[in-house]
Simulated assay, not measured.
Amino acid sequence: MANVKNRIKKRKDALKELNELVQRDSNLLLIHYSCESFYNIKDGRTPRITSIAVRYYSTGQTVSFSIHKVAEKQGKLDRIEEHYDELEREMLDEFFQFVTSHNNYNWIHWNMRDINYGFEAINHRYSVLGGTPVVIHDKNKFDLARKIVDIYGTNYIKEHPRFEKLVDKNNITKRDFLSGAEEAEAFEKKEFVKLHQSTLRKVDILHIIVDRIIDNELKTDSSLREVYGLTPQGFYELVKENWGYNLFIFLLGAAISGIVGYVITVLMS
């Protein structure tokens, strides 16, 4: 019983937090980024950041930062590999200028939580290249991947990679979407435009996922038991969160009223 209560509390807290973020959407951003493969680096350095996409939740407008865009401005599109450090540094300069002017915003992300892949990884790369990162406070970060577990349970998608399988489950278009292996291949082939397009697509998908959670329309592999548990409180939450709640209350009230009316009629006859 205690586990079920904890499960329901975590679900309610996560939904409440997400709803509050969306209600204050004028300062809400979604972020995703692409980087060099972790597994193809032989010299021990951290992966290069290749592109970052930031989307305003309220308007759907996206701001992006990428190596190839900087290279185009500098006339070095055909010599990106020769100027990796310079181009990556300039891209991150632009990104952290954006962070500085949006430091009071909330940031929705997917698993961006450590030095391998996350805000800390971006900060570290900028430091390596001689920059001074602007830290986004943890209280302003919302890890959608973890919150989905709180909302739908650990089995919300039973196969990996979960992000891609969730996209498939919900029939979200994957135009320009690259898997992890495809992104690594694109980097090796210097296909930076494809990497950038994939990053843009993924931040768009994050927006769609958030909207579907808010509208209670996200499809998952979780059973109702895994989400709510088989308890009176779980049943109450299930009914309350779905379209039939008001109908259920109405029918229940009508039934009780009818029974009471019948009993009174019998007693008075």
Rank of each mutant, 00 (worst) to 15 (best):
L230F: 11
Q97A: 15
T173W: 00
L200N: 03
V99S: 11
D78M: 15
M1K: 12
R175C: 02
L224S: 08
D114S: 14
Y262I: 09
N116G: 11
S37T: 10
I108H: 01
Q97T: 13
E191Y: 09
I67K: 07
F96P: 04
Q233N: 11
E185C: 04
E182P: 03
N106V: 07
H68I: 15
G258C: 10
K10A: 14
S34F: 04
D221F: 02
M1V: 15
G180H: 03
K174D: 00
F163Y: 06
K76M: 10
G153N: 14
K147F: 05
V263T: 11
R146Q: 09
D78P: 01
K219E: 06
E82R: 13
G244L: 14
V193S: 11
V210H: 03
R201P: 01
E94Q: 10
V210D: 00
G118Q: 02
L92E: 09
V128I: 13
T231F: 06
G130A: 11
R89S: 07
E120F: 08
V266T: 14
N116V: 06
I49E: 09
E90G: 03
I157Q: 04
L144Y: 01
I67S: 08
V149T: 15
V22A: 07
H32W: 00
I80R: 05
L178F: 03
I264F: 06
F248M: 14
A71M: 11
E36W: 08
K194V: 05
Y57D: 02
V22K: 01
T100S: 12
S257R: 08
I148Q: 00
H196F: 12
E226I: 03
G118F: 01
F119V: 07
F187I: 05
L87D: 08
D176F: 10
V54S: 01
V70H: 11
E81Y: 02
T199Y: 02
Y39A: 12
Y39W: 13
A71N: 04
S127Q: 12
R225Q: 11
R11L: 05
K9R: 12
A186E: 09
L28E: 03
